[in-house]
Design a binder for these strands. Sequence first.
DNA 1: ATATAATATTGTAATCATTACAAATTTACA
DNA 2: TGTAAATTTGTAATGATTACAATATTATAT
Lengths: 134, 134
Amino acid sequence: MNLSDQARRLQERGIRPTPQRLAVYDYLLTHRTHPTADAIFEALSPQYPSFSRTTIYNSVKALMDAGLVRVVTIDPSEQHFDGDPLDHGHCRCEQCGRLFDFEMPDGLLAPLIPEGFTVNRQDIFFSGLCQDCR
Amino acid sequence: MNLSDQARRLQERGIRPTPQRLAVYDYLLTHRTHPTADAIFEALSPQYPSFSRTTIYNSVKALMDAGLVRVVTIDPSEQHFDGDPLDHGHCRCEQCGRLFDFEMPDGLLAPLIPEGFTVNRQDIFFSGLCQDCR
DNA sequence: ATATAATATTGTAATCATTACAAATTTACA
DNA sequence: TGTAAATTTGTAATGATTACAATATTATAT
């Protein structure tokens, strides 16, 4: 997917494809590390010196409202962002702090939903030790 | 389970059963609302005027280290605490903010664990609308 | 093309949950 | 009982996130 594809996607979702939003979105799509707002800022700062931290938060928020990005709340002290809005699980290594994706079979969790509750989103988190840190 | 049972349980887990810790633990066991640190503080303050907010954090931390309490990180802005350390899922109503427990069948998630990852804890979160708010 | 209104960016300041720290208190143990 | 260790507690610091207002950019109508 090239930049104009991404721009089109933002437009389809009803938000303007500004350079800032495109840069943040592209970063999230090409770096599947689930970066924090600060990590995105540090990474993009050299290339876009005008960016402010607030711009990162604003862009991420716009992308989340558009349904293109989701927040991963596995870390109590910081929010991580994920360019893949489809349902999948996350592992967090308690040693190195890295986040990993894993596949989630469709419908696996459906039987767990309590009577009367309407689910808008679901998350599965594993915390533990990754292969490298064991 | 009465207070002396709870005290014994703290002792077994290697932490001193101080009045503050017992009050926090008892509150979490009798109020399954997954309160925040602030909510616990507000609730216990009248009865224990000497309590400080820091005491709540300290007590909760001691209880977590002892494995009697766990933190629920479903809410990006605040941590919620849970007196049930056994694996179970959590629903969060986006309207009223309440958290609900649900059962989690043993072993359901085991097939999802990525190759080489050692799981210390697992969480399942649903976000959506509860029965009352629909 | 231009003017005007709506939207987005950005720097600074405020907020607020959480943590650090140190003094005072309580408890365990010799 | 005395002394060392652990705990509580109030205040101050931290740090991620949000609020806000001024500036800049973009869309739309004329």
